[in-house]
Amino acid sequence: METNIDLKNIWQQQKSEQPDFKELLEKLSRYKKSNLRKLAFTNIILLLTCAFILFIWFYFQPQLVTTKIGIVICVLGMLIYLLFYNKFSRNLKTIDSTDSNHEYIQNLNALVVKQRFMQTTMFSLYFAMLSIGLSLYFIEYTLMMSLFWACFTYLMTFTWLAINWLYFRPRVIKKQRAKLDELISAFNHLNAQWPEDKNNNDAQA
């Protein structure tokens, strides 16, 4: 019976067709463009919305300070969200793929845990700021209405905000959390494969 199987020899017989170098270069340029497009899209949409809101301010010249505060809170909410979104995209790039596997997995895990916390907090903050901002914004215009229409407008606005806050927000958060929890558990599973031996650090140096 054969006792020494030449694993190395079998392993090295696996061959793959090497794609043309030019194909890789094309893929590289596509990759750069698609990354940039994705980041630019979110930024442009939110910045355009901010610009539109500010345009309303200058065009309609609101009289009450509550309207202006409302606008500022809405715009701030969007800008904070944008800032967080951009920061996260950058963070993902700062993880050094030339670290050892152990450090790499630990860094990725830390980032995902941070993202889980930030995403839910930032999302709630974004919703809260938009709700407060809109409520303040409407004061000036409802004052011009009859009591009935003012109440009606506020009732509709608050109903819409309540649906958002109580229905859509928890749903989005739950979905994001489920996705990230799956990752965290996968990383924990990987992390557990390194023995808890402090001497390992010697090897990583």
Partner: peptide, 27 residues
């Protein structure tokens, strides 16, 4: 297991064990 896959693949690629240790982050 994932780490074992990497360790054995590198070994079969004739990477020195000291280098594998550095790549994976093990002693």
């Amino acid at each position: 297991k994932e780490i074992d896959r990497i360790v054995i693949s590198l070994e079969l690629e004739e990477i020195k064990q000291s280098e594998i240790a550095k790549i994976v982050g093990l002693s």
